[in-house]
Computed example of a mutant assay.
Amino acid sequence: MNKKLSEAVALFEEVIMYGTERIIRSFEHQIFEEYSSEQLQMLQIISKSEHISPGKLASLQGVHKSAISNRYKKLETKGLVTTVDSDEDLRGKLIALTDKGHDVVSMFNEVIYEHVEKIVLDDFQETEIDEFLRIFRKLSTILKTEGDRK
């Protein structure tokens, strides 16, 4: 196994694990009192997908479809998500955000951005941020392409 790649994967996992925990633990914002981190992640995924099947959502969140069903019901009750008919499968239903759901995602993104900005601007040079963006754009393209092949 390539040692550098192995280290990169381990560092990526650490950033995701500790970064998520640090961000969520450090917030005292109303949005984190109203919604769980799993619900907010679900809203983020739906936002990026426009609409998504429950099965794909379960796969992306690494949970069983029953967990998605429970989250969906809670978010639907709050007026954040709705179901829409699938264009490809006449029997299929997809999950989409309502206008209120888009508003919550926008608020969540703003809160996260402000917090990450404080962390990053103090410790990173502009060139390091540019390099980070270049690498993550490339990684994103690779991962999306790989996901489309399956």
Rank of each mutant, 00 (worst) to 15 (best):
S37A: 13
H115T: 06
D89M: 02
R22E: 12
N70G: 05
T98E: 02
D123E: 14
K48C: 08
T98H: 06
I23K: 09
P54L: 01
V120E: 09
R71M: 05
L5S: 14
E126Q: 10
D148K: 14
Q44I: 11
S59W: 02
N109L: 06
L94D: 00
L75H: 03
V81M: 04
G62S: 04
K48Q: 09
K56Q: 01
A8G: 05
G55V: 00
E14V: 08
Q61A: 02
G101Y: 06
S86M: 05
V84A: 02
I135P: 00
G19N: 03
F132D: 08
M17K: 15
I68C: 01
T127D: 12
T98N: 05
I142R: 09
I46G: 01
R25G: 09
M17Y: 15
R91G: 07
M42Q: 06
P54H: 03
S66L: 08
L43R: 04
L143D: 07
D122L: 15
R134P: 01
G55W: 02
K65Q: 10
L139S: 13
E88Y: 06
G55S: 02
V105D: 04
T77D: 14
M42A: 10
P54D: 03
K74V: 09
N2Y: 08
H102D: 07
L90N: 12
K118M: 10
N2E: 09
A8D: 11
E34G: 02
D85N: 06
S6W: 08
E21L: 14
E38V: 08
I119T: 06
F136G: 03
R22N: 13
Q41T: 07
P54S: 11
I135V: 13
G79F: 02
I52H: 03
E114D: 13
L57V: 00
H29G: 07
A96G: 05
V120P: 04
Q44N: 13
S66D: 10
I45A: 01
M42R: 03
N2Q: 06
V63P: 00
K3E: 15
E128M: 10
M1N: 14
T20F: 15
S6C: 08
E131Q: 11
S86A: 00
N109V: 02
V84E: 04
Q61M: 15
S86C: 06
E126Y: 11
F32N: 05
L57M: 02
T82K: 13
S53A: 03
K65G: 00
E34V: 06
P54K: 07
K74P: 09
D85P: 04
T127N: 12
M17R: 15
K93W: 03
H64Y: 07
I52Q: 01
D87Y: 05
R134C: 13
E34A: 03
Q39T: 04
E126H: 04
H115A: 12
R149C: 10
T82R: 10
R137A: 08
I46A: 03
H64L: 02
K138H: 10
F27Y: 10
R25W: 12
L97P: 10
K93Y: 00
S26I: 00
F132H: 08
S6L: 14
I45H: 03
D85G: 00
V120C: 04
I46T: 02
L80Y: 05
N70K: 14
L139H: 08
F27C: 13
T20D: 15
A58K: 01
T145R: 11
R71K: 07
E7S: 12
V63I: 01
